[in-house]
Design a protein around this nucleic acid. Sequence first.
RNA 1: AGGCGGAUAGCUCAGUUGGGAGAGCGCUGCCUUUACACGGCAGAGGUCACAGGUUCGAUCCCUGUUCCGCCUACCA
Length: 929
Amino acid sequence: MSPPQLNKTYDPQDVEKRWGQFWIDHNLFTPKIEGPEHAYAIVIPPPNVTGSLHIGHALNSTLQDILIRWKRMQGHKTLWLPGTDHAGIATQNVVERQLMAEGSSREHIGRQAFIERVWKWKEQSGDTIIEQLKQLGASCDWSRQRFTLDEGLSQAVREVFVALYDEGLIYRGERLINWCPRCLTALSDIEVEHETVKGKLYHIHYPVKEKPDSFLTIATTRPETMLGDTAIAVHPEDPRYSHLIGKYIDVPLTTRTIPIVGDSILVDREFGTGAVKITPACDFNDEEAGKRLNLPSKSIFDHRAQIDTELFEPEDIDSDLKNRIHGKSEQEARKLVVEALENNEFLQKVEDHTMAIGKCYRCKTVVLPYPSPQWFVKIQPLADPAIEAVESGKIRIIPDSWKGNYFGWMRNIKDWCISRQIWWGHQIPAWYCTACNIDHLHFSKNPHASQQDQTTPLEASTMSGFIASDAIPIVSRITPTACSRCGGSDLRQDPDVLDTWFSSSLWPFSTLGWPNNHVDLKTFYPTATLVTGLDILFFWVARMIMMGLKFTKGVPFRDVYIHALVRDAEGQKMSKSKGNVINPLTKMQEYGTDALRFTLASMASPGRDIKLAEGRIEGYRNFVTKIWNAARFIALYGDGARKALPVSARSFADQWILSRLNHTIRDCTHYLEEYRFDHATSALYQFLWHEYCDWYIELVKPAFHDPQSEDAQSTRHTLFESFEIIQRLLHPFMPFLSEELWQAFPHSGTSIVTQPFPLEEKDWDSQTIEQDFHIFEQFVNASRTSRALLNCSPVQPMAFWGTSTSPQERTTLNTWKPYIVHLARGTVTLTETDTWSTQNVLRLVMGSITVGTTIDQEIDLQRAVARLQKQAQEKHKEATRLQARLASKNFTDKAEPDVIRESQTRLTALNEELALLASSEAQLSSILG
RNA sequence: AGGCGGAUAGCUCAGUUGGGAGAGCGCUGCCUUUACACGGCAGAGGUCACAGGUUCGAUCCCUGUUCCGCCUACCA
C-alpha cells in the first residue's frame, strides 16, 4: 500500500461525518457476547429526553468514551449502553407549553390524549441528544438504546414497586411534603434547592390567657402562618417561661386559644425570644413537634400556595381580614397579617434575618411544605447495605474524598417521596375498589375545579390527594380486574406517577433485561464503572446502589468515577440567564470534536471544578493540526522501501523514539487505570509534540534528504511503525483524527476502533540511549542559544566547538555528531577547550557540556554576558545552600545517606559548572576589553 | 450552623514514601529554514494565601487565621 496523499489542512467536519457514519454502518460498537474475554460495561447516565448536549454531557460522555474505546481496544467484551430518561416534570412542561400556545391544556384534552401527545413529541424530538452524542463520537452500542418508559424497563419498575410494597418498604401516608405550587406536584427532599436570602424576623406578642396585659413574644420569619398555629412552645428548662407551660394563649387576629407547651427539641433558647409558635401544617419541624405533642394541624394554604379561608374554622379569624386575605399568595398574605398585627399593637419589632428558602429545582418556584397523602419508600433498610458496600470497598468511589459526602447523606437519609401529581411517567400500580373505599375516594372534589373546564372527564382530573391516606390499595404486577375483598369490578388506578429517579435507580440492570434472566444481564452485570458528576450522587448513584443491592444481590457497578462540574473561565456556573453557556456543539464546529474532547479530558483533574477557557480548546486544536502535519511529513517521505531491523540495529534516533514511545504507552495505560485523564492527555501531548515532532522528525530528515543514506529504509520503517502505534494510543482520546490517519496509512483491518491498544515492548526501553540523548540535547540547545545571543539566523552556518567534563559524554557526543551537525547547522569540532580559538569565542555551558562559537560580527555581547552571569548567580545560590546543608552536623547525622551522597554529587557538579561559567565569562570579558 | 474541597507564574492548572518549583495558554525577541505561522527557536516571569508547630530540612505533615467554591442543614 502506497503512502497517502493528505490534504494540506485537516478538515474535522468532513472527517467526523465520514467516520461517525462508518462506525455505525459497520456495527463496531456492538459487543460479541460469546467468547472468553472479560466483559467491561458502562451504562450511560441517561440524559433527559428533553435535553440537548451541554458541556457537562460533553465532559461526562468524553470520559466514558475514552474508557470504553480503551477497554474495547484491549480486547474486552465492551458495552456502553446508551439511553434517555423520560424526565417526568420537564417533559410534561414542554408539551404543556405547546398546548398552551394552541390555547389548550392537558386538562382540556384529558390524560390519555395528553400522554399520546407526549409520546408523539418524544418520537419527533426525543433523540436530539442521542444524535448529538453520536456527533461527539460516543461509541455506544446504539442497538441497545433504552428509554425509561420502554416496556422492559416499565416491567422492572412495576416488579420493584410491588416487591417493595409487599415487603412494607413502600407505603402510602399523609404528611408534609415539599410541594411545588407551579408544577403542582410533590417533590422529594433533594429536588428542593436551598437558597440563602435576606428575610425578616418578626417578633409578635401573643396575649397570655387569663393574665391581662401579659404577653409571650415569639419570633417568626413567616408571620402569616400564625393563622394555622396550634401551640406555642418554650424550652421546659427556660426559667423565663417554664412556669407558663400548661397555660393557654390567644392567637392574635383570631378567636383561637392554644396551649403553651414545653419542647426541648424544637426550641433553641438562644434564638429569637426563646418562644416559638408551632404550625404543624406549614413547617417540617413543627409537624414533628406536633406529632410529639399530639397537636392538631391546621392547613391554611391551598395547592397553589394561596391562603384558602375555606380551610379555617368558621368565625376563627377576624372577618375583615378573612375576606381580604382569601386567595392571597404568601407574600401578599404576609403584608396583610403584619399590617393587622401592627394596627393592633401585637408587633414588637422586625429584624433583618438571613435564612434559607427552598425552591423547586426545575422551575425555581418557592416550595410549599404541604400536607398531603403520598407514596414513600422506607429508605433506611435499603440504605444500610448501600453504606456497607462502599465501606467495605465492594464499590469504590473515585476520588475517594467524596465518600464522606456519600456516607453523610446515607446515614441521615429520610424516606423518599416517590409519587408525583403529573401524568407523564410510570403510573403507580395501585388500584382502589370504589365499593370498599366508598368513604375514602373523593373523586368529585376536584381541587382544580376553579381553574378547569367543568366538563373535564372525571378520570382525567382526579388527584391522588383526594384518595384518603387510609384508602386500601390493591398493588399488583398485572392490572387487576376484580377486588379481592368484595369482588367488585369498579377499580380505579392511582392517578399519580412515580418519580423519574425511581426508574433511573434501576437503570444498570433494567436496561440489561432484568427482571428477566437475559443474557446481557449475565454477561455485563455488574457493570464496571459509573461515570457521573457530583450533582447526581444522591439523586441517582446512591439510589442505584440501594436498588441494585436489593434486587440483584450484587453491586450495580464496581467503580464510581465522579468528575468535575464545568464552569466558565471565571469559575461561574454556566446558566442561560447569565449568558455564559459554552455550547459544545458550537465548539466542535469551530475547533473540531477531537480538540474539544482532548481539552475536556486534559482538564479532568480529580476534586476540582473545570474552568473552561476557550483558549484551551484552541490550544488543543493546534495540537490536532500539529499531528496532522506530522502525518503529512511521514506521508511525504514514506514513499520508498522499508526495512524492519532489530531495535539494536536501528539508528540512534530510532532507538531513542522507540524508548520514549514505550514510556508513553506505559504512562498512558497507567494513568487510564487510575482515571487520571489529565495526566494521560498531558503525557500524549508532551511526547507527541515535544519529543516526536520537535526532535524525532527533525532527526530523521537527513536520512531522507540523502539519497545515499544507509538508514533511510530502516528509519522509514520506524517512522511508520511508531506512527501507527501513536494513532492507536491516541484513538480513545481523538477517535476521528486517529481513524482518518489509520485508514490513510497502510493498515489491515476494518477500523482502528477494534485494533489492539498498544502494549509495551520491553526491549524498546533503553536507558543508555535516553541518557545519551540528554547530552546531545544539551549540546544542541547550547548551540541554539548561541545563535540567538549572536543574532545569527537559523539557516546561517556556524562553526561550533564542543566538549564535556566527562570522558564518557565526550564519547557520546562523538557518536551523535552527525545529528549535532544537522541540528546545530554548521561545523562541529569536538576537542578539548585548550585547542579552541582563544579569540572571539563565546562559550556557553549546559551542565557538564561546553559549546563554543566564533563571534565573527559586530554584535552586542552584553546579552551573552548577562546570561552567563545570571546562570552563575543561580548556580552559586544553590551551591551555597548545599554547602551550608552539608556543613551542618545536624544534617550529616540525621539525613538519609542517599540524600547526603546526592547533595555531595550535586555540589561537585555545581562547582564544576561554576568554574566553566567563570572561565567563559572571563573569556568574553576579555573580548569586550 | 456543620461538612468537604481549593488558594502554586499574568490566566487555567499539575506537583506523595518531605531534600534541586513544572506544563499549557498568554507575554517578549528573533525567524517564512519545503510537515506545520493553528509554526520554529530563544527568553522573561513564582516570599508555593497568612501565622505558628513538627523536622537536620516543609509547596508537601499538624494547628490556627483569611478568602473563594460546593454540599448538607430544623435555629423558628
